Computed example of a mutant assay.
Amino acid sequence: MRNNCSYECEIKHSVVYAKLIGSFNERIAKQLYNDVQHNLLPQLKGQAFAYFVDLTEFQGATPEAHLINNQVNQLLNNAGLVNKAVLVTTNFQFDVAVVMSDALKVQKAYTKTFISKAEALEWLASKGFTIDSLNVAS
């Protein structure tokens, strides 16, 4: 059985956007970690930023991928993350992620979950983060 998992990520201004798709395995989680560490965070140059993560197509992760995801959250927490908008189909998705990630339990960023993408984008804008140029479909 083939495991279909992927992600999209980009940064514009001071918003990091990521969309997780499918069931994550260790290989894809490592790719995401490397992208965040080597491609996205250096662009921020230490400035405060927001993170908008879309979990609407995320179907879970292996235990190894959860460990790496914890490392991704640690990177973000230590790099100036101040606000996080999490788009979910149900709040249960985010609750499971918190249980699996020590970094989410201790993060300093204000985090809010949304079921509506429009509300998530509006909330980020209200926090002063430009989101109009992100490749985020409504």
Rank of each mutant, 00 (worst) to 15 (best):
L32K: 08
V16P: 02
A61G: 02
Y110H: 10
K112P: 02
W123K: 01
A65G: 02
N78C: 14
E64L: 10
V86N: 13
S6Y: 14
D95C: 13
L67Y: 07
S126A: 15
S126M: 05
M100Q: 08
S133P: 10
Q71V: 02
L41G: 03
E119L: 08
E64G: 14
N78W: 00
T56M: 11
E8D: 06
N91G: 10
A29P: 15
N70R: 04
I115T: 14
S133E: 13
A85R: 02
V53K: 03
S6Q: 13
V96N: 11
V16M: 04
L20G: 01
Q43F: 02
G128I: 09
H13M: 01
N135I: 06
F92I: 03
N39G: 06
A103S: 10
Q31C: 15
L124V: 10
Y7A: 01
Q31I: 11
V15Q: 13
N34T: 09
Y33G: 06
L32I: 04
A85N: 07
L124A: 08
Q74D: 10
L20E: 06
A48E: 15
I115G: 08
D54G: 07
I68T: 07
E26S: 15
F58D: 00
I131H: 14
N25E: 09
Q93N: 07
V98L: 12
S101L: 02
E122P: 15
H38Y: 07
A48M: 00
R27L: 13
K105N: 03
K84P: 00
Q37W: 07
Q93F: 08
I115M: 15
